[in-house]
Design a protein around this nucleic acid. Structure first.
Lengths: 224, 224
DNA sequence: TGAAATATGATAGTATTACTATTAGTTTTG
DNA sequence: CAAAACTAATAGTAATACTATCATATTTCA
């Protein structure tokens, strides 16, 4: 298996930060509290001034780590997808039957997220809510092509391509492997959002979660 | 068939505007040029000041029609989904075989959009690009629940429920009818975006468009 | 027709945002 | 223990997202 399993540092593009936030106490506080604040007030209302205040520090100190809040969100997103990729790789490790491996990967990508206590300053369950509510906005911008060229979405695309590879192991003749993979990853976020805010257009309700079953049942019918 | 076929006025929640833009020359200019401007510069850079200038008018005049640019985008989105709903209803009219009717609806929802010359001040092909790039942002906000309660997303949900009804006609026993419908509507927008900006995670390329085939093939396998 | 109502355009003003720059103090490190 | 690096605080700028006011032009309808 790849080097991804060796350590718990996430793959994050260096151009996303000015100073690596994982290397200092203040940096980790910025990550921890930016997640909590964005979750609480939404990305549009979130500002570096408010973040500075909430960590007993200052706007200008936050700016020394991140150019702007968009880059910070890209950083948190990369962190998240890198963490998901790691969990996906780990969960499918040593699983030989391709279909079983695919199901396990889909479970990791579409299921509920629990906190990972190995990383104290990131609340993964909260970060997951941010990804559901805010991630799509990171690429729906006029700067996508330039930022994509700079590699800001590499980890996200890597997760999708990993899923695509597992799909290909099950049925290499299916003609839309990549679109199926990207549909599942994005669609799962969307269904989670709908279950919390638009219950009349999903079959899922707050507590009970069959989103994983929905995707597994569909992919079985599509590929087999 | 419903009253929707009787006239070409779109179903738009009255709380979305202060003064109905379809009732005046200036109002129609606001609609026409806001579409062109948002498409050109992206929603984040778009301002009422720039819009006023581009129509040879004034910021304050635009504010007399719309409270803010978010409401304007909600207005344009409602207009779009209302137009799609109308086209969907028309295209499936008098088509009896349920599967054929479903395929036709999916073609309307996932295919390329051409301008509708009956409405001079709306360039539907451009509005479609805006929906692909900006619509998702209209509901990924902290105000969703309140705005949903006010009915700002009724037309969108109506399109999805109409698709869900067509799915139920083909296979009423499928357990995830609504989620399948919402996945297709949102997923099609996403795949169109990917084909223009993230070619490594779709099977579709700029010119050639098989997005419709992707959804029809999948839904056949899922439902039959 | 002419007064009243309505619509538009222009300007000014406010609070907030998204920064940049500077400086002074504090902590780390070689 | 001196130099370097880091942090906090403050001030300042341009742009945004409005609100308010007023003058003028246009419409309407009595």
């Amino acid at each position: 298996m790849e080097s991804i399993l060796g350590n718990l540092r996430m793959r994050i593009n260096e151009k996303l930060y000015l100073k690596d936030p994982e290397t200092s106490v203040l940096g980790k506080k910025i990550l921890e509290h930016s997640i909590l604040l964005i979750d609480k007030m939404g990305f549009e209302s979130f500002t570096f001034k408010k973040l500075g205040k909430s960590i007993g520090s200052n706007e200008s100190s936050v700016y020394r780590y991140f150019e702007n809040k968009h880059k910070l969100l890209l950083y948190l997103s990369s962190w998240y997808w890198s963490w998901v990729e790691y969990r996906m790789a780990l969960a499918t490790l040593n699983i030989d039957p391709p279909l079983k491996r695919l199901h396990i990967a889909i479970r990791e990508l579409t299921g509920e997220v629990e906190d990972d206590d190995r990383i104290a300053f990131i609340r993964e369950s909260v970060l997951n809510r941010i990804i559901i509510a805010e991630f799509t906005k990171t690429f729906l911008t006029k700067e996508v092509d330039e930022e994509n060229r700079q590699g800001f979405f590499l980890v996200y695309k890597s997760v999708i391509n990993r899923l695509a590879a597992l799909i290909a192991d099950v049925n290499p003749d299916y003609p839309y492997i990549k679109s199926l993979a990207s549909s599942i990853v994005e669609g799962a976020l969307h269904q989670h959002y709908l279950k919390d805010h638009f219950t009349t257009i999903t079959d899922f309700y707050k507590k009970e979660n069959d989103i994983t079953a929905f995707y597994i049942e569909n992919i079985n019918k599509i590929l087999l």
